[in-house]
Amino acid sequence: MTPQRIAQIEHDQGLDRPLPQQFVVYAENTLTGRFGISFVTNESVTTVIARAIWPTVLLVGSATLISTFFGLWAGIKGAWGRGSLFDTTSLFGSLVLYSAPEGWLGMILLIIFVGTFHWFPAGQMSSNTGQTGIANVLDILSHLFLPCMTLVLGYIGEYTIIMRSSLLEVMGEDFVMTARAKGVPDRLVRRSHAVPNALLPTLTLVFYSFGFILGGSVIVEAVFSWPGLGLLTYRAIQDLDYNVIQAVFLLFSLAVIAFNLAADITYGYLDPRVREA
């Protein structure tokens, strides 16, 4: 490479300007949504990110929904029947899954469902066979299954444990005892008095997870080559694709802030004490 070519690249990237000026240009570009060009693909960073957003929303979104549903259910059932076989089993399982690294879980699922049973695709988001309509949706679903299952297993333990402990705390409160003393049926005590109050900490966690939707799960997306923001981040870091890295981290931070704000606002709706305070 000639010195002229190197100088030209430095000029194109603005690296020949003084640092304070580079910063002002960066701030201006960021505020106006211009994140530059990906060094690797030569496309605009906005295009690269736009392509990766929906796969991540689909994967992490569906995993969060499924794990929230089953996690809350198991947490409530476990806490209400504290010490039962279901409770001890689900608590043990939750702790194991909560501690398991997601990348490792993904590998195990790969070995079982791909290597042994040959049921699901080992990676990607589609078979690239040009299917359309229902066949395409089923194709995407079959590709979605394993990465989604990995994330569900990774998240579900956390939801179960938080829901369980938060419900146990509420179960000792006076208003629960009052409700019982009034002769309210057990199931109604649980559903209308205990669970809504115990949901608040879990809600924080759910919103926290949604904040990370855009970040996706870097490891799981890398294991299954799922073309979302997590994989984009993983590759950008490997290739030192600075423009992409800067933009995705900015996006992740914005997503976390936005969902935390949403959690705070929703709190007000769900808990009159917060609203009045």
Binding site: M107, L110, V223, F224, S225
Partner: peptide, 8 residues
């Protein structure tokens, strides 16, 4: 077909 994980 690109696989980021060789295990996969």
């Amino acid at each position: 077909i690109v696989y980021d994980s060789q295990e996969a």
